[in-house]
Design a protein around this nucleic acid. Structure first.
Length: 267
DNA sequence: ATGGTTGTGTGACAA
């Protein structure tokens, strides 16, 4: 039994529907987790996904900003949305998936980007990001007895040296400052999570999932960052058979600035 | 040090 799971910050699900459908046609994941859907739930293109077999949907959206969704061929139960800090942002949704004799709690996160100034005293958005990471430290991969865990999403932090194009030049840039990278590594360690992308491609391999829209030629300059993540509880880590970063998707028509990450687990 | 692009929804933000 194989579980194929895709995660993608889509930067508007309505505008990007043609390339999301391209991903589904080409890769046929069992479950697709989206971030930055940028629309209210009643405007989410639920029928387009249901028509392709993704009839089980956990959607947490809001008008204009943020928004996450789990679209699944497998039944979803115990759907839960958390609003860290009670700020009214749609940044999390989770559901229980049962497959291959496993019960899996799947978390889909969109961590705040944090603005440009990496100083919590001057920049409330950065303070909010640090608060958000602080709250995530309480999230345990073994929180529920008999239930494994997978966590995916746009965490807006590239924690390791080779998660960015230039460690030295990124140290004061939001997404790679020490307070963020150390914080995210603590979320992983305290929660008992395994970073599956790095299990599959350990450092010093360069791994990027995001390239800025502002580059004149994103592929030539290749100033990428690994902002998107796939983690699991320790019991599932040996079941990982493949991780694929769809770099090509950055060059698709009307692309997102993030590309899909696809994980395959075989039980 | 600055500017570069994209999305929502037609303003100014957020990323």
């Amino acid at each position: 039994m194989t579980l194929t799971l895709a995660t993608w910050n889509i930067n508007s699900v309505r505008l990007r529907l043609p390339i999301v459908e391209k991903l589904l046609d080409e890769k046929n994941p069992d479950i697709l987790c989206l971030q930055e859907t940028k629309c209210a739930n009643e405007l989410f293109p639920a029928e387009a996904f249901a028509a392709r077999g993704y009839q089980h949907q956990a959607i947490n959206g809001q008008k204009g900003y943020h928004g996450v969704a789990i679209l699944s061929k497998l039944p979803l139960s115990e759907i839960d949305c958390r609003d860290h800090g009670n700020v009214g942002h749609a940044r999390h949704v989770s559901a229980l998936v049962e497959t291959g004799g496993k019960r899996i709690r799947l978390h889909n996160f969109y961590v705040p980007a944090g603005g440009d100034e990496p100083d919590a005293a001057k920049n409330p958005k950065f303070a909010h990001k640090l608060d958000y990471i602080e709250e995530m430290k309480a999230l345990r991969a073994d929180a529920e007895a008999g239930v494994s865990s997978i966590l995916v999403g746009d965490l807006n932090i590239a924690p390791l040296e080779h998660d960015v194009w230039s460690h030295k030049q990124m140290l004061k840039i939001v997404s790679h400052t020490p307070v963020e990278t150390e914080g995210l590594l603590e979320v992983i360690a305290k929660g008992g999570w395994v970073d599956l992308m790095r299990q599959h491609a350990p450092e010093p391999a360069k791994l990027y999932t995001w390239w800025s829209y502002r580059a004149a030629d994103w592929a030539a300059s290749d100033r990428g960052r690994r902002l998107d993540h796939v983690w699991s509880s320790a019991d599932l880590a040996p079941d990982l058979t493949d991780i694929e970063i769809l770099r090509d998707a950055r060059g698709w028509e009307k692309p997102s600035d993030h590309v899909p990450v696809i994980a395959r687990l075989t039980f």
